[in-house]
């Protein structure tokens, strides 16, 4: 069982806010999902290597060469706030 304080900590890590009103329900759902995971403990996995890629293949790397796939203007057009070639965010340093 996980308590509301842990769920609040996890939400902070995930940069998500949970209102006090929603916390009880969120914690209940969280525990309901964790209960589903309990079945995993029944599996014998001693000396079983974790499977990260279903084909167990290594990532193929391209030659380290500069290529322009998408131009800067195309990328910047979706920025919520920008100035010249920069993304704008609230001031970080005073």
């Amino acid at each position: 069982m996980t308590d509301a304080a842990t769920v609040r900590d996890v939400a902070a890590l995930a940069r998500l806010a949970i209102s006090d009103q929603d916390m009880e329900n969120t914690t209940a759902e969280f525990n309901q999902t964790l209960a589903l995971f309990d079945a995993l403990s029944s599996a014998e996995t001693t000396n079983v290597a974790p499977m990260i890629n279903p084909l167990d293949s290594a990532q193929r790397l391209r030659i380290d060469r500069i290529e322009t796939l998408v131009d800067r203007a195309g990328l910047m057009q979706n920025a919520p706030a920008s100035e010249e070639d920069y993304f704008l965010v609230p001031r970080v340093l005073d």
């Binding site: 995971f37 995993l40 996995t45 079983v48 290597a49 499977m51 279903p54």
Partner: peptide, 10 residues
């Protein structure tokens, strides 16, 4: 644990 069980399933 889930990554290990994934291998068992595969």
């Amino acid at each position: 644990k889930a990554q290990q069980v994934r291998r068992l399933i595969a």
